[in-house]
């Protein structure tokens, strides 16, 4: 755990520092700009999919999928952050209670 924390921390901090130090010409290239806009979207989407549908090495549709669907609709309707989280978790909790 500590290895991941310290290595990740080092990586994240150096990237923050690099932006303040690197000559403008490098980061102003369109490809660099674009990649940094696309990366978070791709990684977050992949993370959401895995956390919702993966159980070990299997793919399952369970209460998590229902909770995720409700959270997605809430987020699309621009609900506040905490409400999105509460609705997603609440849906899964209620489903587990009644099944």
């Amino acid at each position: 755990m500590w290895t991941a924390i310290l290595l990740g921390t080092l990586g994240v901090y150096l990237l923050k520092l690099v932006g303040l130090c690197v000559p403008k010409s490098v980061l102003e290239q369109p490809q660099v700009q674009e990649a940094s806009a696309l990366l978070p979207v791709a990684l977050l989407a992949a993370l959401v999919a895995v956390q919702t549908f993966a159980a070990g090495h299997d793919l399952v549709i369970d209460a998590r999928a229902a909770g995720f669907a409700v959270a997605l609709v809430a987020a699309l309707l621009r609900a506040p952050f905490l409400l999105v989280v509460a609705l997603g978790a609440g849906t899964a909790a209620v489903l587990r209670l009644i099944t």
Partner: peptide, 19 residues
């Protein structure tokens, strides 16, 4: 650590704009 670092790439761009 690698996933965390990749997600931090956008901070470099912010830094550039802020520098």
């Amino acid at each position: 650590a690698a996933t965390a670092t990749l997600l931090g790439v956008r901070n470099s761009l912010y830094g550039l704009n802020l520098a």
